[in-house]
Nucleic acid binder design. Structure first.
Lengths: 143, 143
DNA sequence: CCTACATCCTCAAGTCACTAGAGGAGCAAG
DNA sequence: CTTGCTCCTCTAGTGACTTGAGGATGTAGG
């Protein structure tokens, strides 16, 4: 209720950097807060909660547009949560994919590093493997 | 030696898209090839190899600047490969980190999705967990 | 009251690694 | 000769911010 928190304090409390908070306001993800006489933004607890929600969602890899949807769902608690469920499931699938391809990548990098004879480039597996894709067993889709 | 391959063919052969090849030339990652009378780029086997090297490195998640270093190492085979080794090791560490944080993320998403009662938003774990970071056991660094 | 200094403001431009589109020229086949 | 493909340059857009310039405001100490 009492808009009293300065942008720097919200930043500290939520872990979202000051310019990022202003950016979120600009793109309409966070409502423009009231200002002091000296034109400074004043936030309250609700704003901080929203920013925490946003930060956590970003950490989980959701895109801004997905977060927009999730936020709008949060604002209307009577609605079905199937949309939130769908978004989370899609993200989960993405994450599983990414873990799989990162593991392939890890294996290949390990092979590279282990194969490095610490000699000259001529005989270095690192360079060798990068140069010759045929030496790579896996098909990596994206890393 | 015989510069004879058109950009579309190199693209096909290496899996690097045509505009991306031109982009790599622009940023100096790939040397500007000779042109035909009709101003078309003509590539040879060496260029294709270099592009394969670049693509594979990108798939492994190396940044353009790192690839620049790796390429310059490849060009001077007498040098020590310790720099390549260092770059690969750093990338390996990054990948391991990322896998760890993605696994935490996977667990959290799974918890969210399983906790969804398919009812209204009010009781939905998905929204709940996003809103309250305290409910999240893990510290995720980046996803 | 004055002076440092931290914090805040706006606006524009930069980052990374591409991708997309406009508008036009070259080239091979039917 | 025309259809349709590939190619050319150039500019601008993408996502999610970050950085910097240039200035105003707020606060603590002397």
């Amino acid at each position: 209720m009492n808009h009293v928190i300065a942008i720097g304090k919200v930043s500290e409390a939520t872990g979202v950097k000051v310019p990022t908070i202003r950016y979120y306001e600009q793109i309409g993800l966070l409502p423009a807060p009231p200002r002091t006489e000296g034109n400074r933004r004043t936030y309250d607890r609700k704003d901080a909660d929203r920013l925490t929600f946003i930060r956590h969602s970003r950490e989980l890899g959701f895109e801004i547009d997905q977060i927009r949807t999730l936020l709008s769902l949060q604002d209307r608690p009577d609605q079905s949560c199937s949309e939130a469920d769908t978004i989370a499931k899609a993200r989960l699938a993405e994450v599983k994919d990414k873990i799989a391809s990162l593991k392939a990548l890890e294996a290949e990098l390990e092979r590279m590093v282990e194969g490095c004879s610490h000699g000259r480039v001529e005989t270095c597996q690192v360079i060798e493997i990068l140069a010759d894709h045929g030496k790579c067993k896996h098909h990596l889709h994206d890393a």
